[in-house]
């Protein structure tokens, strides 16, 4: 598995390549990008803050849990960016490979969903008139 946290633009093709396997008939990827609106407000840019050692540790754990749930997984590659991102920038890429496609969809979805729940990375949305830490308050 290849797990990465970076403050540089993510090379999507390189993450996909890291998930390729000759034993796999499917490579499935989720690419998360910065959207220009949030709950009706115009987003100017995003600021991602990470707790790097724990984020990397938890990302590895998520990938290991996926490997346990889908033993047929051949490769897993995850890259998450932090720092300041502009609209359209790639924030995260999850790529997996499996022999058949159904497992690749399920495993990819599990990894991005679990990542969002447990990995210590925080997103602050910047609007024209202020900023908000996403999901911080009930």
């Amino acid at each position: 598995m290849q797990i990465d946290l970076t403050d540089q633009p993510i090379d999507v093709a390189a993450v996909l390549a890291a998930a390729e396997s000759e034993e796999a008939g499917a490579v499935n990827a989720f690419i998360g990008t910065v959207r220009n609106r949030s709950e009706g407000r115009r987003v100017v840019r995003l600021h991602y803050e990470a707790y790097p050692p724990m984020a990397l540790h938890q990302l590895r754990r998520v990938a290991e849990m996926a490997q346990e749930k889908w033993p047929m997984l051949r490769k897993i590659a995850v890259s998450h960016r932090h720092g300041t991102l502009e609209i359209g920038d790639v924030a995260v890429v999850v790529a997996v490979s499996t022999p058949h496609r159904a497992d690749s969809f399920a495993a990819c979805e599990y990894i991005i969903d679990t990542l969002k729940e447990v990995v210590p990375i925080w997103k602050k949305e910047e609007y024209e008139d202020g900023t908000v830490w996403v999901a911080a308050h009930p």
Binding site: Y51, A55, H80, V92, K116, I121, W122, W133, A136
Partner: peptide, 11 residues
């Protein structure tokens, strides 16, 4: 190594 973890919002 102790840290305080507010609601995460990665991805």
């Amino acid at each position: 190594e102790i840290a305080l973890i507010p609601p995460v919002s990665g991805g």
